[in-house]
Design a protein around this nucleic acid. Structure first.
Lengths: 195, 195
DNA sequence: AACTCCCTTGACACGGTGTAAAGTTGACAT
DNA sequence: ATGTCAACTTTACACCGTGTCAAGGGAGTT
């Protein structure tokens, strides 16, 4: 094993990513990841002290490679608030399937690992900020329904766009991604935009 | 320990219920439940072969004591579809907090225990039937939006009323139960009822 | 008194996480 | 060529929670 192939860390992250993506609902053990990476289990522990650390690093790596922040930020370019809302729903909605595997692993760990829970909460708060920006733009245009405060409207949008709701509609109900996006936009509009 | 105090099974179920309700997010071990019930761990295994069995039995016991079916069925009494929809949202929405602890445990087990997953799916399908009944009533009155088929409308309502959404709004966003119910009714109406 | 049922105590196998220590190997410096 | 270093490997083990097994006790029944 020559030294030019020494970026073991990324090899492991890619292996974890691949396994999580392939089996979102299944348990992925440290030894599975090691085997997939073609590396010993101890090598994995050398780079990532705990399973939560590895998962968290995988999520970060994924965000970095996929360039989430840039993609979500792109939705801010729309001039009108309503367009911005639509753009954000699409940007995030299309991002969910790409992180779903890792996300599922985090949700499964949520109750048993507070560190993993914190890492996942952190990512979800980032999404919430995106929701808030869309709601604020709506409000600035005077298009936000008077039924909710900006805070409450953000809560509603954030809840609507949860990974769990995506999972339910796409996996349990068998919806297409297209229908998911259209419906989410429609519900978000009818719930948040003033007549 | 005299024989009149011999309904150990219910003692265990109550203990499990109490612990799950008290710490919805925490791990509840078999030994914890045994201790809470004032019984040996083996006695628990005597009544419930696996953790999934115990959780499932607890959920059933809870449904029985709380009389869910009757409470959900009550929403069917409303004459008009729109009233029925509102009544169902309220009935189920007010039931969620009562089963939340147990539900949380099931969600945590979902990925690692297929039997527990099946038990939880079964309960959720029951809720889905309630959603479907409400949607059908709406359709019969000609009040269902033309945007969705009955099937799709059921999917939307079912997704909206998920335990996860309740959890997010009540726990993460700090909403009151009253606001949760009102908002859910409002969103369900604006999404499903024709103008 | 014997029988049975339900419970207790105590031991153990198994699987997954995480730790610890000793051995191997390739890159690089001297 | 020799030595050093860092990364990786192998092996072993502690810990914890689930689930199994076996022996024993004690209150009711016959």
């Amino acid at each position: 094993m020559s030294r030019e192939n020494r970026n073991t860390r990324e090899t492991i992250l890619n292996a974890a990513w691949r396994l999580l993506e392939a089996a979102p609902g299944r348990e992925v053990r440290m030894s599975d990841i090691a085997a997939e990476a073609g590396v010993s289990r101890q090598a994995v522990y050398g780079h990532f002290p705990t399973r939560a650390d590895l998962l968290t690093a995988t999520a970060r790596y994924l965000d970095e490679v996929k360039n989430v922040d840039a993609r979500l930020a792109a939705s801010r370019n729309a001039a009108r608030g309503v367009d911005r809302l639509a753009a954000f729903v699409e940007a995030w909605g299309d991002y969910i399937p790409e992180i779903y595997g890792v996300g599922r692993a985090f949700m499964a760990m949520y109750d048993s690992d507070s560190e993993a829970a914190a890492a996942w909460d952190d990512r979800m708060q980032a999404v919430r900020h995106g929701c808030q920006a869309a709601v604020d733009a709506l409000k600035r245009d005077g298009d936000l329904t008077p039924d909710y405060s900006a805070r409450q409207a953000t809560d509603v949008l954030w809840t609507l766009l949860s990974v769990e709701n995506w999972e339910r509609l796409r996996n349990d109900c068998g919806w297409s991604q297209k229908r998911y996006l259209e419906t989410m936009k429609a519900i978000a509009f009818s719930a948040l935009v003033a007549d």
